[in-house]
């Protein structure tokens, strides 16, 4: 089938099998490799992307279901080549990652959380990333990263 997907603000027309997940469409159709496959059955959250600004699992969405919605991947929240957003920079500052495989999904889960909740508590941060598994970090430095990002974003929004 022919699909029109809006990915990171750009409309793309893809020729895909009906059975193609959004995850596979992004990786193999659009060629954006920053979205990673972890379990392909909706548990690990590694494949998290934003759909209309909300964190969702791209393995649990058919590409066709995403037509008409805005899809944002990790490449879409990166300001430019070599540049990092405040959230991304905060993950680097606290070393909120190790192998980097779950990281794009974690960053997007954090972006979605902080958009709705600029000053989350630790429990709220934990809840927001509870659907994103990380096997390296034990989550400690990820929680620190998101708290730091919240603090920085609040300051950056203060005149």
């Amino acid at each position: 089938m022919k699909l029109a997907l809006n990915v990171n603000g750009t409309d793309r027309v893809l020729e895909l099998e009906d059975r193609t997940s959004l995850l596979d469409a992004l990786r193999d159709g659009v060629g954006l490799k920053g979205t990673h496959a972890g379990c392909e059955h909706g548990v690990c959250g590694t494949c998290t992307v934003l759909l209309d600004g909300e964190a969702v699992r791209s393995c649990l969405i058919l590409a066709a279901q995403a037509e008409g919605h805005a899809v944002t991947t990790i490449e879409g929240v990166t300001p430019g080549p070599g540049e990092l957003s405040i959230v991304q920079d905060s993950f680097v500052e606290t070393h909120g990652m190790q192998c980097g495989y779950c990281t794009p999904g974690m960053v997007l889960a954090a972006v979605a959380l902080l958009r709705d909740n600029p000053a989350p508590t630790r429990d709220e941060i934990v809840e927001a990333i509870s659907g994103n598994l990380c096997r390296c970090t034990g989550y400690g430095q990820i929680v620190e990263a998101i708290a730091l990002a919240a603090e920085r974003l609040q300051r950056s929004n203060t005149p």
Binding site: D18, R19, S21, E40, H41, G42, L60, I61, L62, Q65
Partner: peptide
Amino acid sequence: VIAGGQTLMPMLAMRLVRPTRVIDIA
């Protein structure tokens, strides 16, 4: 029928269900 797909998609991926057509009601 596929609604949110949060249960159907894993079943599809594991080929535990093999529908001929998937009807999106969104």
